[in-house]
Simulated assay, not measured.
Amino acid sequence: MAGHAADHTPAGDTAAAAGPGTVSGWAVRQPGPISSGPLVPVRRPAPEPGPDDLLLRVEACGVCRTDLHLAEGDLAPHRPATVPGHEIVGRVVAAGDTVTRFRVGDRAGGAWLRGTCGDCRYCRAGRENLCPASRYTGWDADGGFAGAALVPADYAYPLPDDQRATELAPLLCAGIIGYRALRRSALPPGGRLGIYGFGASAHLAAQIALSEGARVHVLTRSAQARELAVALGASSAAGAYERPPEPLDSAILFAPVGDLVPVALEALDRSGTLAVAGIHLTDVPALIYERHLFYERNLRSVTSNTREDGREFLRAAARIGLQVTVSPYPLSRAPEALADLAGDRVHGAAVLVPG
């Protein structure tokens, strides 16, 4: 996997420094607009791994739009003062007594999904992403905006030692959820795919689709993102509300903008499918049946991912040599990274790096 960093690659970092037995990072104190400062620095006792856990020394943690939704209150907090971050790359520094898949010193990844019941009808059918008892990193438990994090071993991913941590981090949510969204879009072999919004997740999903022979049309408001899309091989790149140059077999909406749902549906060919990839979406305008849904057009949501999605995607990423475009920030600048994400100023994926 090749990687590209934006011009503001970080210098030293002090936010992750802590005394013996403590870990420093950031927590969401009071959800609200980024300008209100919802992230506050925290220093807490180092977490102790349970029997099934890994304790990771964080090497890098991606900044996902879900983190922004949690900070700003679009997603209601599940617990007070939670440390966000669920694209965690780290080294195992301790493991619980029952853990056999990882050893101290291994590189491992912690992702959004961190727990399911394993026994409900969804889990038994291989659809654990729909488990009513599912739990999530950075929402139900502290995440990776810190110097260390706990990850349940059964939900961790082995990661290669020969890749930069900053390039691996976005794969663990942006990549995985983009992969699931691509599959939910029912893209046929050699099909025509429209991608609305072109950030961390979209630029990875586009490469998977291109590797499978698709023609990809990107529609996004960011001129810089359009340039990246063309550089990666997109057949066209235009404004978010423009019409693609040909009817689409499939489309994925990555931008959390409900106004784009009818726009994308109208761009579909007969029997086409639109997959909405975000965990949060602004209100969708009224749909006109004849314009947006007739001719058996399909509208699908995307909910989290299964661990098998993650394994499949990581294998595909390694096979095709996925190009990961990242903008690194020192952990001390986590609020700035979220603000840049909110303002569409991030090139590719934002990634936090502890010092």
Rank of each mutant, 00 (worst) to 15 (best):
D7M: 12
H8Y: 10
A11S: 14
A15I: 02
A18L: 01
P20G: 05
S24H: 05
A27L: 07
Q30R: 11
I34A: 08
S36E: 06
G37L: 06
P41F: 05
P41I: 04
P41E: 06
P45H: 04
A46K: 01
P47R: 15
P49Q: 05
L54Q: 06
L54P: 10
V58G: 00
A60H: 03
R65P: 01
T66L: 06
D67G: 13
L70T: 08
A71L: 15
A71E: 06
G73T: 00
D74Y: 02
H78K: 06
R79W: 02
E87Y: 12
A95P: 04
R101T: 06
G105I: 07
G105S: 15
R107G: 12
G109F: 02
G110P: 01
A111K: 03
G115I: 05
R121P: 08
C123L: 13
A125G: 13
R127D: 10
P132L: 02
A133D: 08
S134H: 11
G144Q: 04
F145Y: 15
A149R: 10
D154Q: 12
A156H: 07
A156P: 12
P160G: 12
L168H: 11
A174F: 11
I177S: 14
L182S: 11
L182W: 09
R184T: 04
L187V: 13
G190T: 04
F198A: 04
Q207N: 09
Q207M: 08
S211N: 15
E212H: 15
A214F: 06
A214N: 04
V218P: 02
L219K: 01
R221D: 00
A223L: 10
R226C: 02
L228E: 01
A237M: 06
A237W: 00
A237C: 03
E242I: 05
S250A: 15
I252A: 04
P256A: 14
V257A: 14
E266Y: 14
A267D: 11
L268C: 06
S271D: 07
S271G: 07
G278V: 02
T282H: 01
Y289G: 11
L293F: 10
E296Q: 07
N298F: 07
R300Q: 11
S301D: 03
D309Y: 13
G310T: 14
F313L: 15
A317N: 02
I320A: 14
G321I: 03
L322H: 10
Q323N: 12
V324E: 00
V324P: 07
V326W: 07
P328W: 08
G343C: 13
G348W: 03
V351I: 12
